[in-house]
């Protein structure tokens, strides 16, 4: 029998990352489309889409839960405590603020001024959230 592959080094982990994105996107899409169906008076479609969205939300949470095990192995730190979770999110926000700025520049260069402005607004929010979580962690340590 072959050596057991570690989850953090596996293709399965990459699949989990992709699946989390897919489930989260599908949840948002189905919720959004359900609301449009409600406004358009398509009650049957609205109900079906909402119920599908609930499933996607649940699936996304479960996928994240499985993925956290791999991230624990990658970072060597236990995930799941509030301090750990907040630190992980803060780190994501800091990196993502830069990513948003790059996306904004691309959008503007390609002529999509409104989309560029949206990415810039998101980047500012990411920085604010990173600051808020950092303050939370400082409060927790003090």
């Amino acid at each position: 029998m072959a050596d057991r592959i570690k989850l953090d080094e596996s293709l399965t982990r990459e699949s989990l990352e992709a699946a989390l994105r897919d489930e989260a996107v599908a949840a948002v899409e189905a919720t959004w489309f359900a609301r449009i169906a409600e406004i358009e008076g398509e009650t049957g479609a609205a109900r079906a889409l909402r119920e599908i969205a609930e499933q996607h939300q649940l699936n996304a949470k479960t996928t994240l839960d499985l993925l956290l095990r791999a991230r624990e192995a990658l970072t060597g730190r236990r995930a799941g405590t509030t301090a750990e979770n907040a630190a992980a999110l803060a780190s994501f926000y800091e990196n993502d603020a830069e990513a948003q700025a790059a996306r904004a520049a691309t959008a503007r260069r390609e002529g999509f001024a409104d989309i560029g402005s949206w990415f810039e607004s998101m980047g500012r929010l990411r920085a604010a959230h990173a600051g808020r979580l950092a303050a939370l962690n400082q409060d927790g340590e003090s």
Binding site: E38, E40, G41, E42, T43, A46
Partner: peptide, 13 residues
């Protein structure tokens, strides 16, 4: 809610 959705559906159809 449900009653408003019913009104929209009735008007649209």
């Amino acid at each position: 809610g449900a009653h408003t959705d019913g009104l929209r559906a009735a008007v649209g159809h």
